[in-house]
């Protein structure tokens, strides 16, 4: 069951790289939040009750509901155009993401031959998600897509942390709390102010400081 969820998670990342609509990204983030929630539920054997409740509430409320709603609100309020304005056609984007996934699995199988405590699917998709998140940040022009790319990296890290949850439950909580705090902080403090300071939420307006 977990394997199916992980596979769906990987597909959502491929979808993100193929589409250029901001709303689609937000929907993908919501879906990823639900997937992570289900993964936490399925992993209940490794977690204490309190920990399980915390992680479940965190993934469902924050990752699946609050962040997407908040992002949608920001998009509507600031009249952000729907187009995410990638630097390259989506065909190449999908090609690169596929290569990243292949690379992720390559590392995963290499790792599993080196160490016994690795689950290749878990590990491969997590690593590929983290790298794809970075790729989204690099290849899209809007500041809000940067924030979304960052949240995708966080989701990948959350999944990676879940893969070691049996050995060290604390580490998931550690990652969750502050990474989410940072993401909310990014959105709340900056995005709204950037919009009133700059004409558009565009990284081209962040190039005044240079040598």
């Amino acid at each position: 069951m977990t394997e199916v969820l992980i596979a769906i998670f990987g597909i959502t990342m491929l979808y993100v790289s193929s589409t250029s609509r901001v709303e689609a990204y937000i929907r993908v983030l919501a879906v990823q939040g639900v997937i992570l929630f289900l993964m936490v539920l399925l992993d209940h054997a490794h977690l204490e009750v309190l920990n399980l409740v915390f992680l479940g509430a965190e993934t469902l409320l924050f990752k699946a509901i609050i962040i997407p709603v908040f992002l949608m609100f920001t998009v509507r309020k600031n009249n952000i155009q729907r187009e995410a304005e990638p630097f390259m056609p989506s065909f190449y984007s999908v090609l690169i993401t596929t290569a990243i996934f292949a690379f992720g699995f390559l590392i995963a199988f290499w790792a599993s031959s080196n160490a016994s405590n690795v689950r290749p699917l878990y590990f491969g998709v997590s690593i590929a998600t983290i790298i794809t998140g970075l790729f989204i940040i690099i290849s899209r022009k809007k500041i809000i897509t940067h924030v979304m790319g960052y949240i995708m990296i966080e989701n990948g890290i959350f999944m990676l942390a879940m893969s070691v949850v049996g050995e060290m439950p604390m580490i998931v909580n550690l990652g969750v709390l502050l990474d989410l705090f940072a993401a909310i902080y990014l959105l709340g403090l900056f995005v709204t102010k950037i919009n009133s300071t700059f004409d558009e939420l565009h990284i081209d307006s962040l190039t005044n400081l240079r040598d």
Binding site: E167, L186, F190
Partner: peptide, 30 residues
């Protein structure tokens, strides 16, 4: 304008750095 740009870059680049460091912590526990 300029302080906002600087703060944004600081926050964004450092939070990605911190996320990477966290991946390092996960690997360390492995």
């Amino acid at each position: 304008k300029e302080p906002l740009e600087a703060a944004w870059k600081y926050m964004f680049i450092c939070s990605i750095g911190i996320a990477f460091a966290f991946v390092g912590l996960i690997f360390l526990s492995l």
